Amino acid sequence: MMRIAIVEDEIHYQDQLKEFLLKFEQDKGETIEVTTYSDGDEFIENYQAQFDIILMDVQMPLMDGMSAAEEIRKVDSEVVIIFITNMAQYAIKGYAVDALDYVLKPISYFSFSQRLSRAVDRMKKREDNHITIKIKGGVTRLKISDIYYVESQGHKLIFQTRLGEFTTTGTMKELEGELSSYHFFRGHKGYLYNLEHVDGMNESCAVVQGEELPVSRTKRKPFMEALSNYWGEMIK
């Protein structure tokens, strides 16, 4: 399911964009959840990286789309932004906030669907290398390569990442399955390591980003084999 935000102060264009999204959903066989906002100020107030695509009007009364996009990029570098504007020169500034594209008013479905298809392609490529987890107060999207390791404590999963620590609920078994296509190894019932960040093994511990983490006795040999294979792939 795609989560799309419409940030547009004119009700006419809000309704038109919702109508176009419904048609796109039917044409492409996608499932889309749409949330609408009437101003950039309202939108960024509780923004928590919860959307895949943002359709953002450039000119709004309280906070314009460009300023809102700058605030969004401080907390979410991945969401796809498409500007909606009646002046092409505003859209050019969108490159400063890594906007994917822009749609000119008045909006035609053909132009809109082309740009939305491009946004969906980027989103799906991005999802191939990301994981979305629920955290207190919302959700966050983590880049797979930013994850150092995951620790299980009861029903909690604690992600140690380049951006800091994130806690969610779930089981290690489910997470292990979700990350099975990446270079992760479960060296202990309570730890899942990203081999990309393993520096080596020290006696009975894996050294991950300089931190020593336990590897169970039965897992030591397969862990070393997995690590050696990963390093071999990296130097081919």
Rank of each mutant, 00 (worst) to 15 (best):
M1D: 07
R3N: 14
I4Q: 04
I4N: 03
I6S: 00
V7C: 15
E8H: 04
E10S: 05
D15W: 00
D15Y: 02
L17I: 13
K18P: 00
K18L: 08
F20Q: 04
F20V: 04
L21G: 00
L22T: 13
K23P: 00
E30W: 09
E30T: 13
Y37T: 09
D39T: 04
D41L: 13
F43Q: 03
Y47G: 03
A49S: 15
D52C: 06
I53G: 01
Q59F: 02
Q59N: 10
M63E: 03
M63I: 09
D64S: 02
A68K: 08
A68V: 09
E70N: 10
I72A: 12
R73D: 10
R73K: 10
V75P: 02
F83T: 01
N86F: 00
M87P: 00
M87R: 08
A88D: 10
A91D: 02
G94R: 09
Y95K: 06
V97E: 08
A99C: 08
L100Q: 05
D101S: 11
L104P: 09
K105P: 10
I107L: 05
Y109H: 06
F110N: 04
Q114F: 02
L116F: 12
L116C: 04
S117N: 14
R118H: 09
V120L: 14
D121P: 00
M123G: 01
K124T: 14
K124L: 14
K125T: 10
E127M: 12
D128F: 01
N129V: 06
I133C: 06
I133D: 05
K134H: 11
K134W: 00
K134F: 02
K136M: 12
G137Q: 01
V139T: 14
R141M: 11
I144L: 04
S145C: 09
V150T: 04
S152I: 08
Q160R: 14
T161C: 11
L163F: 07
L163S: 13
G164L: 07
G164K: 06
E165Y: 01
T169W: 14
T169R: 14
G170Y: 10
T171P: 03
K173Y: 06
E174D: 15
G177W: 01
L179I: 05
S180T: 06
F184A: 04
H188E: 11
K189V: 13
G190E: 03
G190D: 07
L192Q: 11
Y193I: 12
S204H: 14
C205S: 13
A206D: 06
L213C: 09
V215N: 02
S216T: 10
R217W: 07
R217L: 12
R217V: 11
K219F: 09
P222G: 12
E225N: 11
E225W: 02
N229P: 00
W231K: 12
G232V: 08
E233K: 14
E233N: 15
I235H: 08
